[in-house]
Each structure stands twice: as structure tokens, then as C-alpha cells.
Design a protein around this nucleic acid. Structure first.
Length: 1027
RNA sequence: GGGUGAUUAGCUCAGUGGUAGAGCGCUUCGUUCACAUCGAAGAUGUCAGAGGUUCAAAUCCUCUAUCACCCA
């Protein structure tokens, strides 16, 4: 049965993948030899909502190469797949689905339990998309072990068993008990659309056109000072009596929550007024709030006016200043980022804040949070409406900083001055509003502006667990590649912030903390952290007494109401109760869920069945390699390090291989909004998975972004076709016939070409392994490409043709066996990169004991198999053929014409080489005859090869002038080389200092070049005589 | 503003001190029975610039320029 001319990827890929899966080829430990070392990789879990993008394709191709390589080497291999539950993204997707049909209840209408039901339904229907897609890429994960961060959750349906949920909860409880987790009020990134805290990772900072307003904060009680600006030499540039301090802000609405104005301690301009009070220039006049002018290192004296307003509850930098200076943080917005409408009227709140500013009283965090400093007329407004209102009010009152319309900071083109011919203009001043680009944080899912918000959240006290994570990388226990990414890792961990792990969502691991009234009285709810509701209730019962009626209620509000009914002495809603002796004790669970990263932080142990001491855990943990993108070094890699050490006291992996980004061919980041996204599935449809994979690996130079173009992929698809046809040729020539012995022992062919290619193959095997050991995927891929195409297809197949046609059956069968050995090795070594086409060839060409996926990775030793004599001889043959072809092409000898050839100066080695290879040289270079001569007839084109000179007598066919030009060109090139070599060798310091082998190489090289030069000169002389 | 990296053929990029490379593209020729998703031949470089170290620098050091990314 004749093979097709090309590989039909479309038809074969699904069939081959199904065959692998059916045979269980990817199962943990498949193809492992007895007592083999283990090799394990945890997939970076894609979102359960995710679909395959180029980044996934890249990331998983690299993992698959490593996994297939190790599996073929007989290692006990596991590639653990799975998905994370992607709290916010999944919740959003499901809500959006629900919204498609107006008959559906909304999330809030249906309530938590029912909504989670919907999420699970969605997950079961659509959550497997990415798995199917990874299979199309050829990913050889052990799908039977597919993990999910929410598996085993209390409400999980059938088919979602597993214990990941329990593991996460257990870790929370353990860390809580060890004091590594606490609840506190801190500034977090708040998404006003989803009304939850989000992580830094989920915030995209985007530069947007914005405005910077300049306002006057009048000094209290009409105080004044002399404002002086000096240059670097102390000369006075500007001096003015002022009764205000000038403040610039991009977010005027936050002025309402200012707690202070800060200036740099070294700033002499404001030194006279530090310690005084100034007035926030907005809000009802009769209750204008005053705030202190303080010093702090944060303000940059050279930026704006040098003075900064401090709004601790709505800005991260300000928050730090506020903490340092004990400045109250006043929250201005509600969870949807509308201006607060709760609490006491403004007059009352302002009065309280004034007392604090004057130092007459202090405020606890919670007390400060209860104060609503939004003026009554702005309450309930959207934050952007409030901004407009604030600007308008201040400007109307004349408290905006005014400048002439010519001020360059306005960014508008000023009208021409009168002296330049413009209209005379009155000196009407305008408010200083700079138009400038500002960085704004956006929620990556919601696309709304993120609001720094002071809220109660759960935190991991990262400073307590960061130590081992740092040490492990410092002392090399864990290796990060490329090296430079260590710096990113260190930088982040050395400046680690508390990690906010609570999210105000429903989909996720609900925090295992229950609240009940405190039996010994006291202000706050009593907190009980336990692995289950039953345990929590039991603990509470112990404290309240055996016969207490614990009543589980939905939330804090319900608990408070119940208590109020029972005890009736509650004052503040949401605050504190001190029940005398309730007969029923309400208990409610913390409504928040954990950050998805908290659960993915446990990925290495959680997927292996921890906390049970499973066999998988023993075999595969710590894992071998983590392959991941540089963008999640902090968010995931660092957290896995911290958490694995905190929980099991062990490194999660030996090596982290950090890869770069896949960009479009212009180097732009692929993004939906730019429309430059290449969909890997489209590419697989068009070129086949192998071509896509090979392209990605060939371009995976460590630490460099790769720019992907379709041309490149097409090129590697062609490579597959080339391989296919080399095999097709072999098949047609009986190379894979049943009578051809498969070499098992060390091959030692007699024919030079065979001996040569065997050595070359062993060489590339060693190089491929070395490259893969070092994660140099591009070197491995490019090396194989050059070998298969450039050595095997371009030369060896040609050399083999006359041998296969040989009358001598021993030569013929040796060549068949050699070619089979070589091609099988090509298939084996290419398999991790191009699994489909190689598997198909493997199966098509011969009867095999196993599929290629479980083929034995070669271990040929170049030291044994490289035959130096054969290598030298073949290199002589190749340069002769190339020389002849080049001369023919340039002299325009018709390609098909067989010509006579002459030679002079042929030494013994050359003669032997010719005799051994005459057939193949004649065939590839189209030579009819070879005769030895002392001198060439005129009109001979000469080709120096080693010490011999070959000649093509082409009198009449060639133009002597053209041949002279050709030789002159070669001569010029040679002269340059000879010049360089001579220069070095004449330099005594070179001979003294350079290593011997370098000097020796240069000498040999020079001699060879000089020989060639002599031949060319002789040829030129002859031609000139002729001319 | 801080950090990291990049600058090599028309394009995309390899190249950790010893004769400047690959793929794609381009030009010319070629369908001889593995392959036109092919073959043969060919052209193309101040290795960003300026200094320095070295017998020797694309490679190491310093500075400059430009670009990119990350963090503020």
C-alpha cells in the first residue's frame, strides 16, 4: 500500500489522540521502568471558564515536550491536569447566562444556594471546553486525574467528588490556628461592579486622558505666610503672601475624606505653616472641615505644588501616610462606589471630624469608618457625578487656582500675544485644570474603575511565612529559570504585603468561620474557625453550655435581629450586643469566599490527595518542574512556595521554568481589543497541531518574547511533510520491510555514508538531550530540524540511493538497516515536539511492539558511534559535490547534463574517498567520468577540494571572463580569511596566550586556505593565458 | 520616577571571548521515479553609537541613543 504524499493532520490527529487515551498511555507511571525516578508536572490550572489562547498553547506545548520526553525515557511520569474555579470570572459568566433570558431570576433574587446550583450546572456543561482544546494540541495529561479546586465542595453534584475543597478548608483552619490568618480593616482594590475585593492581578492599569485640578486649601482663621520659591542656588524666583496652600488632585471627590495635607519635611516653602490647620474647600460653608498640615517623606517637592492631600481611605499611598501619621481614614463610598448615604447627617459627622483634627479626641478604626463625611447634597451620587459637583462648587466659590489662559499647563494652544499681532486680551484668569494622561486601575473582568476601599477582609500574614520561600530560592533548593526572573521573585517577596484572601462572592470556598454572640459579653461577635459546621457548632456549644439552642441563621443581619428580639437592648445595627441570657443563640457563617489563588496556591499537594498520605503524594511530590508565564511569578509561584512550606514544610517543585509571552508578528501583545489574536485552534485546523507546536518550541528562546507569524508555522508544517516523504522514500525502498533487521546492539556499518550518518545521529541525540536538560527548547527543536532536513534528507537519503541500488546485497541490506535505524531515531526524537505525525509514521511504517508515545528514547553514545574517518570522508565528498554544483550553476551548465571531470593532485585519502563514493558523487553532481591529469586543458573550470583540484573541461561552454570573475570572488573571500589568520598567528602574544587547540586550529585552517589559494591562482593563470 | 531586558541580513530571531548564523522572504535555474508543502545555486551585515578590558569582543565593563515590558 503506497503512502500518501502528505500527512493528513485533520484526519489523523483525533484518531491518534483517541488511541493514546484508550491505551492509557498518559496515565501516571505509564511506560515507567522498574524503580524509575519520578518526573511530575502540575499544569498551571486554566480557568474553568477559559478557552485555549496562544499563551496556553505555548505553555502546554513546553510541558508536553518535557513530559513525553521523560515518559519515553522510562521515568515514572505524571502530568497532572486540572482547572481552577475562577471565582469572579465564573460567577460573571453564569450571571450573564442567566441574564440572557429575562424570565430567569437574577443571582440576588434566587439566593446563594440556588445560584451555586446554577454554577455547578454550568460547570458540568461548559467547564470542560479547555480540556477538549488541550487534547487537540496533543497534551498528554493524565486526564483520569483531572482536578478542580472546588471538587468535593458541600453542594457539589455527582461527578465532582474529590477532596480539594476539604484540603483548602483544612489549610485555612490550620493557618488560622497558627495565627497566620487574621481579619482586619485594610485598603484593598475594590471592584464596584462585582462589589468585591479583588487582587492586584485582576487590576489592569491603563493610561487614560485625565485631568489634574488645582485647588486652594485656605489656612484656618485667615492665617497667612510668605510663599517663596528659590532656584538651586538659593536665588528667589517668586515670592507672594498667601492665605492658602495649593493642592493638585486627579480625584476631587475624594477631598471630602481628606484627613490631612502633607508636605515633604525638607520643603522650605511650607515650613512656616506645618502644624497649622487648613480648610477643605468644599462642603457646606458653616461646617467647613479643617485638617492639619503635616510632614511626610511621601510628597515629592518637585511634583505639582509639592503638597499632597491625604485621603487614607481611598488611595494606597495616602493610606500609608495616614498609618504613619495617625491620620483618620474616612470612607466616602458604598460597595457600589456611590457616595455614602448612611450614618449621621453631615453636620454631625463634620463636627466629630473637626474635634479629631484639633486633637480633642481620637477615633478607633471602626469609629472612623462609621463617620460619613459626604455632604448631604452629594449623598447617593455616583462617584463621577460627585467629582463634577465638587469641582463646580469649589470653582464657583473662587477656590480653584487661577492662571492666565496662556499657562502651558493648560495644554491648550494660547491665543497669540498682542505683540505678535493677536487681539489685545483682558487678563481674565481661568481655573488651572491640567489635561494629562493618568494611570487608572480597571477591573480586568468588570472593566470599571477600581476603587481603593477600606473594608474588613481576611488576610494571610505573609511576613510570617515568606522566609522559607525566599531561602529555598536563595540556596538553590528551588531553581528559577531564566536566572533573572529570580530578581522579580525576590523583589516581590522581600517587599511582601499582607495577602487579602477574602472575596465578597458566592462561588468559591466559603470561609470556615462562624460567628456567635460572645458568652462572656464583650463588643464583637465571637469567632469560631472550624473545618465544618458541626465542629463549629460543637465548639460554640461548649462555650454557651450543653443545652443552648444554637440557631443557625443566614447572615449577620438576621442574627442581630434575632438577638434584638430576644434581648431587646441593641442600639447600633451591625455593631455590638451583649445579651444578658438569651435562650436561643444565633450563629451565622462568614459570607465571604476565599480568593481563587488561595486554593491554587495548594495546587501541588491538593491535586495529589493531600491531606491524605496518598501514594501519588509520595511518588510525585515535590514535583519536578513548574512551567509558567512570567506574569504570574508573584501571584502564583510565590504563593505556592509560601503555602507549601507553610502547610507541609516542603518545596512544591524543584525547578520553575518561566517562559515569555506570545505576541503577534509585529510584537504587539495579543488582545481582543486590538483584534490581533491568533486562535491556536484555528492554526491547528490550518496547519496541524504538530506545526503549531514545533513553531512554538523552535521560538522558545529562554526569556524572550516570541513573535508569531503564520509564515513561520507554514514553514514547520513543510518540515513535517519533508519528514513524511523521507519516510515514504524509505518505505518504497523496503527499508521497513519485515526482512530488515532492527538493530539493537551498537551498529557498526561498513559503508562510509552509513557509518557517517550513524555518528551524526548519535551526536544529535546527545545535543537534544543536553538542550532539553537545560530547558533550551529552541536549541533542541532547531537542532533536530537542521539534522533531519539538512543532514538526513539533503545528504543521507541521496547517498543511500546508489547503495540501495547496489548489486551487492550485503551493502543493500546494511543500508536498509541503517536507514531504518536513523529514521526511527528521527521519529523518536521528534515525537515530543511533533507527536501526531511521528506516531502516524511509526505505526504506518512497520509492525511495532508499542506505540511511539511509549517508544524507547535513544541513548546512543557519540563517543562510540562517531567514526572520525567516515566523517572526514563525507565532509570531503560534500564539499566536492557542492563545489561542482556551484561551478555548474554559475557557468550555466544545464542541470540535467552529465559532464566529464578531471582531477589533479589527488592524494591517497582523496583517491580512496573518490573510489568509495564515485557512484553517489556522480549521481548527485551529474559527473560522467573522472580522469586524473597533470594539467587541465584550457577552458577548464576548477574546483579546489582539500589538496586536490577538480576541473570541468567546459571549453566553448564557458565565458573565460565569467570564470575569472567567479574565481576572483572566491579569492577575495579567501584572502580576507588568510589575512585574519596570518595576522593572529604572527602575533606572538596570540601564540603565547591562546589555548593550544585554538592556535593549532588556526594553523590548520591557514594551511587549508593557502592550498585552495594556490589552486585558484593556478586556474586564474591558465585562464589569463587563454584570454 | 524605580527596575528589567532588547538593539545582529529585507523580516523574525539564534548566537556566554576564538573564521558572523538559521528560518522566512528575494533573484536565477530546475517537475531526474521521496517530497513543488520540493530541489540546486545566489545576493544581502559599520552585530545601535562612543569609549575601555583582552593576544582576541556581537559576546565582558562604562557611557549615550532608541524601543519594549514590569512596578510605582
Amino acid at each position: 500500500m503506497a503512502m500518501d504524499k502528505t500527512f493528513d493532520a485533520k484526519e489523523a490527529e483525533a484518531r491518534l489522540y483517541a488511541a493514546w487515551e484508550e491505551a492509557g498511555c498518559f496515565r501516571a507511571g505509564a511506560n515507567a521502568t522498574d524503580g524509575a525516578e519520578s518526573f511530575s508536572i502540575m499544569i498551571p490550572p486554566p480557568n474553568v471558564t477559559g478557552s485555549l489562547h496562544m499563551g496556553h498553547a505555548f505553555n502546554n506545548t513546553l510541558q508536553d515536550i518535557l513530559v513525553r520526553w521523560h515518559r519515553m525515557r522510562g521515568h515514572d511520569t505524571l502530568w497532572q491536569p486540572g482547572q481552577d474555579h475562577a471565582g469572579i470570572a465564573t460567577q460573571m459568566v453564569v450571571e450573564r447566562e442567566l441574564a440572557k433570558d429575562s424570565a430567569n431570576a437574577t443571582r440576588r433574587e434566587m439566593g446563594r444556594e440556588a445560584f451555586l446550583q446554577k454554577v455547578w450546572e454550568w460547570k458540568q456543561q461548559s467547564g470542560g471546553t479547555i480540556i477538549t482544546q488541550l487534547k487537540r494540541l496533543g497534551a498528554s495529561c493524565d486526564w483520569d486525574r483531572n482536578a478542580f479546586t472546588m471538587s468535593g465542595a458541600p453542594n457539589a453534584p455527582e461527578g465532582e467528588e474529590g477532596n480539594f475543597h476539604d484540603a483548602v478548608i483544612r489549610v485555612f483552619v490550620e493557618m488560622y490556628d497558627k495565627g497566620l490568618i487574621y481579619r482586619g480593616k485594610r485598603l484593598v482594590n475594590w471592584d464596584p461592579h462585582f462589589e468585591t475585593a479583588i487582587s492586584d492581578l485582576e487590576v489592569e492599569n491603563v493610561e487614560q486622558p485625565g485631568h489634574m485640578w488645582h485647588f486652594k486649601y485656605p489656612l484656618a482663621n485667615g492665617a497667612t505666610y510668605t510663599y517663596v520659591e528659590k532656584d538651586a542656588d538659593g536665588n528667589v524666583l517668586f515670592e507672594e503672601e498667601r492665605d492658602y496652600i495649593s493642592i493638585a488632585t486627579t480625584r476631587p471627590e475624594t477631598m471630602l475624606g481628606d484627613g490631612a495635607v502633607a508636605v515633604h519635611p525638607s520643603d522650605e516653602r511650607y515650613a512656616p505653616i506645618v502644624g497649622q490647620l487648613c480648610e477643605i474647600p468644599v462642603g457646606p460653608k458653616e461646617h467647613r472641615r479643617q485638617i492639619p498640615i503635616i510632614t511626610d517623606e511621601y510628597p515629592d517637592p518637585d511634583f505639582g505644588s509639592g503638597a499632597v492631600k491625604i485621603t487614607g481611605a481611598h488611595d494606597f499611598n495616602d493610606y500609608a501616610v495616614a498609618k504613619r501619621g495617625d491620620i483618620p481614614c474616612y470612607r466616602l463610598m458604598d460597595t457600589a462606589a456611590r457616595m455614602r448615604a448612611d450614618g449621621a447627617p453631615y453636620a454631625e459627622a463634620a463636627e466629630l471630624a473637626m474635634a479629631v483634627a484639633k486633637g480633642e479626641r481620637g477615633l478607633s478604626e471602626n469609629e472612623a469608618d462609621a463617620v460619613n463625611l459626604v455632604p448631604d447634597d452629594l449623598r447617593g451620587l455616583d462617584r463621577f457625578e460627585a467629582r463634577e459637583a465638587v469641582v463646580r462648587q469649589i470653582t464657583d466659590e473662587g477656590l480653584a487656582v487661577m492662571v492666565p489662559p496662556t499657562d502651558p499647563r493648560l495644554g491648550t494652544k494660547p491665543p497669540a500675544a498682542p505683540e505678535e499681532g493677536g487681539e489685545p486680551r483682558d487678563e481674565q484668569l481661568v481655573p488651572l485644570v491640567e489635561s494629562k494622561p493618568i494611570m487608572q486601575p480597571f477591573g480586568d473582568r468588570s472593566k470599571v474603575v477600581i476603587e481603593p476601599m477600606l473594608t474588613d477582609q481576611w488576610f494571610v500574614d505573609t511576613t510570617k511565612i515568606v522566609g522559607p520561600a525566599l531561602d529555598a530560592v536563595r540556596d538553590g533548593t528551588v531553581q528559577i529559570l531564566p536566572e533573572r526572573d529570580k530578581k522579580v521573585y525576590f523583589h516581590w517577596l522581600e517587599n511582601i504585603e499582607p495577602w487579602c484572601i477574602s472575596r465578597q462572592l458566592w462561588w468559591g470556598h466559603q470561609i470556615p468561620v462562624w460567628y456567635a454572640p460572645n458568652p462572656s459579653g464583650g463588643a464583637d461577635w465571637m469567632r469560631v474557625c472550624a473545618a465544618s459546621e458541626a465542629e463549629a457548632l460543637e465548639e460554640i456549644r461548649l462555650l454557651w453550655g450543653e443545652d443552648t439552642d444554637l440557631r443557625l441563621v443566614a447572615d449577620e443581619r438576621e442574627a442581630a435581629e434575632l438577638l434584638q428580639d430576644l434581648v431587646g437592648n441593641l442600639t447600633d445595627e451591625g455593631a455590638i450586643r451583649q445579651p444578658q441570657s438569651p435562650s436561643i443563640v444565633p450563629v451565622f457563617r462568614d459570607p465571604d469566599v476565599l480568593d481563587t489563588w488561595f486554593s491554587s496556591g495548594l495546587w501541588p499537594i491538593g491535586t495529589l490527595g493531600w491531606p491524605e498520605d496518598t501514594d501519588a503524594l509520595k511518588r510525585y511530590f515535590p514535583t519536578s518542574v513548574l512551567v509558567t508565564g512570567f506574569d504570574i511569578i508573584f501571584f502564583w509561584v510565590a504563593r505556592m512556595m509560601m503555602m507549601q512550606y507553610a502547610v507541609v514544610g516542603e518545596r512544591p517543585f524543584d525547578t520553575v521554568y518561566v517562559h515569555a509571552l506570545v505576541r503577534d508578528e509585529k510584537g504587539k501583545k495579543m488582545s481582543k481589543s486590538l483584534g490581533n489574536v491568533l486562535d491556536p485552534l484555528d492554526l491547528i485546523d490550518e496547519y496541524g497541531a504538530d506545526a503549531v507546536r514545533f513553531t512554538l518550541s523552535a521560538m522558545a528562546a529562554m526569556g524572550r518574547d516570541l513573535k508569531l507569524s503564520k509564515d513561520r508555522i507554514a514553514g514547520y508544517r513543510n518540515f513535517g511533510t519533508k519528514l513524511w516523504n523521507a519516510c515514504r522514500f524509505a518505505e518504497m525502498n523496503g527499508v521497513f520491510g519485515a526482512d530488515v533487521p532492527e538493530w539493537v546492539a551498537t551498529p557498526a556499518p561498513t559503508q562510509t555514508a552509513n557509518a557517517w550518518i550513524v555518528g551524526e545521529t548519535a551526536q544529535i541525540r546527545a545535543e537534544t538531550d543536553a538542550a532539553l536538560e537545560q530547558f533550551r527548547f529552541n536549541d533542541a527543536a532547531n537542532g533536530l530540524y537542521a539534522f533531519v532536513w539538512g543532514r538526513v534528507c539533503d545528504w543521507y537519503v541521496e547517498f543511500a540511493k546508489p547503495l540501495l541500488d547496489s548489486e551487492d546485497t550485503a551493502v543493500q541490506s546494511e543500508t536498509r538497516a541503517t536507514m531504518r535505524w536513523v529514521l526511527d531515531r528521527c521519529l523518536l526524537m521528534l515525537h515530543p515536539f511533533m507527536p501526531f505525525i511521528t506516531e502516524e509514521l511509526w505505526g504506518t511504517l512497520a509492525e511495532r511492539d508499542t506505540m511511539l508515545v511509549h517508544g524507547d528514547w535513544p541513548a546512543d553514545d557519540p563517543a562510540q558511534l562517531v567514526n572520525e574517518d567516515a566523517a572526514r570522508e563525507m565532509s570531503w565528498v560534500i564539499s566536492l559535490i557542492e563545489g561542482v554544483r556551484s561551478a555548474r550553476a554559475q557557468m550555466r551548465v544545464p542541470a540535467g547534463m552529465h559532464v566529464a571531470m578531471l582531477v589533479s593532485g589527488l592524494d591517497a585519502a582523496g583517491r580512496a574517498a573518490w573510489e568509495a563514493n564515485a557512484a553517489l558523487i556522480s549521481r548527485t553532481a551529474r559527473i560522467e567520468t573522472l580522469d586524473e591529469v597533470d594539467t587541465f586543458p584550457k577552458g577548464t573550470v576548477t574546483i579546489p577540494v582539500g589538496s586536490a583540484t577538480f576541473g570541468l573541461p567546459l571549453e566553448g561552454l564557458i565565458d573565460p571572463a565569467e570564470e575569472i570573475a567567479r574565481l576572483e570572488k572566491q579569492k577575495a573571500k579567501l584572502s580576507k580569511e588568510i589575512g585574519g589568520l596570518e595576522g593572529r598567528l604572527k602575533n606572538p602574544k596570540f601564540v603565547e596566550s591562546a589555548p593550544d587547540e585554538v592556535v593549532e586550529e588556526a594553523r590548520e585552517n591557514l594551511a587549508a586556505r593557502q592550498e585552495e589559494m594556490t589552486a585558484i591562482d593556478a586556474a586564474l593563470d591558465r585562464l589569463r593565458e587563454l584570454g
